[in-house]
Nucleic acid binder design. Structure first.
Length: 555
DNA sequence: CCTCCTTTGAAGTCG
DNA sequence: CGACTTCAAAGGAGG
């Protein structure tokens, strides 16, 4: 775990994790190699297409599913017809309907990952990452392009057309930078144009991939310097995702997104860095600097509503009196924790889901996204994991002293166990399956939420069965009975899964997620993939089962 | 205006 | 070391 931290700059520069990838690139090459990016896209797109197609006749899907994750195919629109109708309408209408699931990723180019991962892990799931289905659904537009403008943006929220602009056939920049490089850049950009804190700023050497201080020129595009005018850097995914547009790390209201942030940098990079650590957040440029001196997107001005602030964020001293601490808090911007893979995914996909479903409630959207997440193929998830990993690295470099602990307990909310929610009914936002939701639900019936004790019971054998497995959200229902049912299914599911995956992966424990070298992680069991792919059997079960354990939410 | 809801994953705390 | 908590995003909804 400590790798990141301990590694300090090294990590970035020569991230153990990263390197392995590269090294192994050989293999990767063989596989999907760089081209895979497109391949993925195509695949994704095709999957989407299938999804839509399948909607009507979902059940079948076996053929296609074999290759691709059961993802979307199974969405059931039953629920709100409106949504369904809406979706249909859109499809007919614009044709876009949905963008590729991963609009952004292609940028990332983590081919290796996919490949490698695939090799090791993919056994189980015969997904052919590299080869997209013939479906031509998409012309190779840049992924971003695909995203339906309407879809994404429809939302008023999308402040700036930035994303639209994204549509421009952005090509990756010729100059390929190390993925991390961008990250670094970003930091500078915003913050201190002039003076990056030497100690902090990790410099990445283009060649080695080691972080180096970006030149202003490089940065500028992305990060408009002035705080006021700051172009925020869209999240890596963010720019893809129009609606939010926000940088991963909170964006100030006024923040404006640079239209083409990505252009400036390599896509991959941009994605990594930009997102989270977007400048805009960086509040006061001057004072806003993190102790480390590097402004980061994650930094939120102290005033930020969320956190009352606590002293912790900063690295340094904690030995101050409470009062002092307080002051410091005020001064120091709140540094947010880096987004994890799922969060990244959510950011990217939320707009689409919103567009498709017309739902706006995040809770509901998140449920859908959760299902979809599970339905993603390993490769797909791997992309996000990788992205998340890089972000963490970047974050650690930027804020070497920062630790999650800093933010710990700041938000007051104490998650209470999900039972007593008096306030809102716990509605299942997703009624069984929403039009939007993806098939994931299928295996969806797995366990309840992670935290829930039941889960544990359910998967005794697989402790490791981390959330992902349990994942299936279905359990949203609060009702105990429903849960019980779910659990049963889930248990079964888990066990089967465990069996399958376990062999080598077994250990999926969360451990993996930590500092394990990426490659290793992948091999073992990527934190992520634990469950990603539902077995056919599981799917069958799901299909069979009524997703809707849940009762309809009382609206 | 604040918190909840909801998701997964990462990382923290606690026993 | 395992179990449990908190936070990250997001935006409607409830208090």
């Amino acid at each position: 775990m400590p790798q990141l931290q301990s590694g300090g700059g090294d990590d970035l520069g020569a991230p153990d994790e990263l390197i392995p990838f590269q090294d192994e690139g050989d293999e990767q090459d063989k596989g999907a190699g760089r081209g895979s990016a497109h391949g993925d896209l195509d695949e994704l797109k095709s999957s989407l297409v299938n999804e839509s197609e399948n909607r009507s006749g979902s059940a079948s899907g076996s053929d296609s599913e074999a290759e691709r994750p059961p993802q979307q195919p199974r969405e059931s629109f039953q629920k709100p017809r409106d949504y369904l109708a809406e979706v249909v309408r859109r499809q007919q209408d614009g044709g876009f309907f949905k963008g590729p699931p991963y609009p952004s990723y292609p940028f990332l180019m983590i081919p290796e990952l996919g490949t490698e991962y695939h090799q090791h892990i993919g056994d189980t799931a015969p997904r052919t990452p590299s080869r997209p289905p013939p479906r031509a659904y998409l012309q190779m537009k840049w992924p971003l392009l695909d995203v339906p403008a309407g879809a994404t943006l429809k939302d008023t929220r999308s402040p700036s057309p930035a994303h639209l602009s994204n549509k421009v056939p952005v090509v990756q920049h010729p100059h390929h930078m190390h993925p991390l490089t961008p990250l670094i850049t970003y930091s500078n950009d915003h913050f201190s144009p002039g003076s990056p804190p030497s100690h902090l700023s990790p410099e990445i050497d283009p060649k080695t991939g080691i972080p180096r201080p970006p030149h202003p020129s490089e940065l500028s595009p992305y990060y408009p310097l002035s705080p006021g005018a700051i172009g925020q850097i869209p999240h890596p995914l963010g720019w893809l995702v129009p609606q939010q547009g926000q940088p991963v790390y909170s964006i100030p209201p006024g923040g404006f997104r640079h239209p083409y942030p990505a252009l400036a940098m390599n896509a991959s990079m941009s994605s990594l860095m930009s997102s989270r650590f977007s400048p805009h957040m960086v509040p006061p440029s001057a004072h806003g600097l993190h102790p480390s001196g590097i402004p980061h997107p994650t930094i939120v001005s102290p005033i930020v509503k969320q956190e009352p602030t606590q002293p912790s964020m900063s690295p340094g001293g904690n030995s101050k009196s409470p009062i002092t601490v307080k002051k410091e808090e005020e001064k120091k911007p709140h540094i947010k924790k880096p987004l994890n893979a799922f969060m990244l995914y959510m950011k990217e996909m939320r707009a689409k889901v919103v567009a498709e479903c017309t739902l706006k409630e995040s809770a509901a959207i998140n449920q859908i996204l959760g299902r979809r997440w599970h339905s993603l193929s390993r490769e797909e998830q791997a992309k996000y994991y990788e992205l998340a990993r890089k972000e963490r690295q970047l974050h650690s470099q930027l804020y070497p002293t920062w630790s999650a602990r800093d933010n710990y307990g700041k938000k007051k909310k104490r998650k209470r166990e999900k039972q007593p929610q008096h306030k809102k009914l716990c509605v299942q936002y997703l009624p069984t399956e929403k039009p939007c939701d993806s098939p994931a639900s299928s295996h969806g019936s797995m366990l309840d939420s992670p935290a829930t004790p039941s889960t544990a019971l359910a998967s005794p054998a697989a402790p490791a069965a981390t959330h992902s497995e349990q994942a299936q959200p279905l359990s949203l229902t609060t009702k105990p009975e429903a849960r019980a049912q779910l659990s049963l299914h889930s248990a079964a599911f888990l066990s089967s899964k465990a069996a399958s995956s376990s062999s080598s992966l077994t250990s999926q424990s969360p451990l993996l997620s930590r500092p394990i070298p990426f490659t290793t992680a992948l091999l073992t069991s990527p934190p992520s993939f634990p469950t990603a792919i539902p077995s056919q059997a599981a799917l069958a079960v799901l299909q069979a089962q009524p997703l809707s354990l849940v009762t309809k939410p009382a609206e």
